[in-house]
Simulated assay, not measured.
Amino acid sequence: MLLTAQPLDPIAFELGPITVFWYGILIGLGALLGYLLVNREMKKRGLPEDMLADLLIFALPAAIIGARIYYVIFRWEQFADNPMRAFAIWEGGLAIHGALIASVITGLIFAKVKKVSFWKLADIAAPGILLGQAVGRWGNFMNQEVYGGEVSRSFLEGMMLPDFIIEQMFINGSYHHPTFLYESVWNLLGVALLLYLRRWNLRRGEMFLTYVIYYSVARLFIEGIRTDYLLIFGTLRTAQVLSIILIIGSIILIIYRRKTGLADKRYLDD
């Protein structure tokens, strides 16, 4: 059985010289589903119908570039001999934290230019961002990346996983934790949580900061299982360090905004 486990083909189809990878399709599908979810809510909140499309024109390219730059910086040894491979994003290697940093910077500039509250936009977008991440992780699955340490086949079967997932987790001669799946499921649960929290009419900005805390908690623990992690200072796992910073920073920001009156407005206002 071990000798016959075959990975899924990462190529979806080919059109002449053009090769379309499942990685790109699933990342795009995640972005589309996130867009549909966010756009529906933006209309409810009274924002212009074309505002989200205008934002995505800048935010999506920025997110992809930021995600790749972040990955390449912390994995430069893979690209030092052939720097042009840094542009081969279809091979995988997009770091979510890099995408989020670039997206937040883009959102801040966009909100300032459009004279709209950044926190209002961020709160509305939070569930859609998490949905996009949940779907996008299946692109990592197709590329056989974002996996954890070795486990037995019986361990995976005990999780009631379908055979196609179990066999895809057979990498380099052994089975591995499907950490992509752990994160995807956690993110989907997070989407449901954020949609539920809308009814609580949280203070402005706290929906987005709850998303940051929620995702960072999962990443802090899941990163400890993964084998394809990025390192900072040669010893610390970058995602874990950043997750701790984001959790503490978000909590401080929530307290600060409440005490200074910056969070007096609520999600359902306007």
Rank of each mutant, 00 (worst) to 15 (best):
residue 9 D to H: 12
residue 11 I to H: 05
residue 12 A to I: 02
residue 22 W to S: 05
residue 24 G to W: 09
residue 24 G to K: 07
residue 25 I to Q: 00
residue 29 L to W: 13
residue 33 L to H: 02
residue 35 Y to A: 10
residue 36 L to H: 11
residue 37 L to K: 06
residue 38 V to C: 13
residue 39 N to S: 13
residue 40 R to P: 03
residue 41 E to V: 12
residue 42 M to R: 08
residue 44 K to I: 06
residue 48 P to R: 00
residue 52 L to M: 06
residue 55 L to V: 02
residue 56 L to I: 14
residue 59 A to M: 12
residue 59 A to R: 09
residue 60 L to C: 10
residue 60 L to G: 12
residue 61 P to Q: 07
residue 62 A to K: 09
residue 64 I to A: 07
residue 64 I to R: 08
residue 64 I to G: 07
residue 64 I to H: 07
residue 65 I to S: 00
residue 67 A to G: 15
residue 69 I to W: 11
residue 70 Y to H: 06
residue 70 Y to G: 03
residue 71 Y to F: 13
residue 76 W to V: 03
residue 78 Q to D: 15
residue 78 Q to N: 15
residue 79 F to V: 11
residue 81 D to N: 11
residue 81 D to E: 14
residue 83 P to Q: 00
residue 84 M to W: 15
residue 85 R to P: 08
residue 86 A to S: 01
residue 87 F to R: 13
residue 94 L to T: 07
residue 94 L to P: 10
residue 95 A to S: 14
residue 99 A to F: 06
residue 100 L to R: 07
residue 101 I to G: 11
residue 104 V to G: 14
residue 108 L to R: 12
residue 110 F to S: 03
residue 111 A to D: 03
residue 112 K to W: 14
residue 114 K to Y: 09
residue 115 K to C: 10
residue 118 F to I: 02
residue 118 F to V: 03
residue 123 D to A: 06
residue 124 I to V: 01
residue 125 A to I: 14
residue 127 P to H: 03
residue 127 P to D: 04
residue 128 G to N: 07
residue 130 L to Y: 07
residue 133 Q to F: 08
residue 135 V to S: 00
residue 135 V to E: 06
residue 140 N to S: 03
residue 142 M to I: 03
residue 142 M to W: 04
residue 144 Q to R: 10
residue 145 E to A: 00
residue 146 V to N: 09
residue 146 V to R: 04
residue 147 Y to V: 07
residue 148 G to A: 01
residue 150 E to M: 13
residue 151 V to R: 02
residue 152 S to Q: 04
residue 160 M to G: 09
residue 161 L to K: 06
residue 163 D to G: 05
residue 164 F to N: 12
residue 165 I to M: 12
residue 166 I to F: 05
residue 167 E to L: 04
residue 170 F to R: 02
residue 172 N to Y: 08
residue 173 G to T: 02
residue 174 S to M: 10
residue 176 H to I: 00
residue 177 H to M: 06
residue 178 P to R: 05
residue 179 T to S: 02
residue 181 L to F: 05
residue 182 Y to A: 01
residue 186 W to E: 04
residue 186 W to D: 00
residue 188 L to P: 03
residue 189 L to C: 06
residue 193 L to M: 15
residue 196 Y to C: 13
residue 199 R to P: 03
residue 199 R to A: 09
residue 202 L to Q: 01
residue 202 L to P: 00
residue 202 L to S: 01
residue 203 R to I: 13
residue 205 G to R: 10
residue 208 F to Q: 08
residue 209 L to D: 14
residue 209 L to H: 15
residue 216 S to D: 03
residue 219 R to H: 10
residue 222 I to Y: 12
residue 222 I to W: 11
residue 224 G to R: 01
residue 230 L to C: 04
residue 231 L to S: 05
residue 234 G to Q: 01
residue 235 T to C: 07
residue 237 R to Y: 02
residue 239 A to T: 13
residue 239 A to H: 15
residue 239 A to G: 10
residue 241 V to S: 02
residue 241 V to K: 02
residue 243 S to R: 01
residue 245 I to V: 14
residue 246 L to A: 11
residue 247 I to V: 08
residue 248 I to F: 15
residue 248 I to N: 10
residue 249 G to M: 00
residue 249 G to R: 00
residue 250 S to W: 05
residue 251 I to C: 02
residue 252 I to T: 06
residue 255 I to T: 04
residue 255 I to H: 04
residue 257 R to Y: 05
residue 260 T to N: 14
residue 264 D to Y: 06
residue 268 L to P: 09
residue 269 D to F: 00
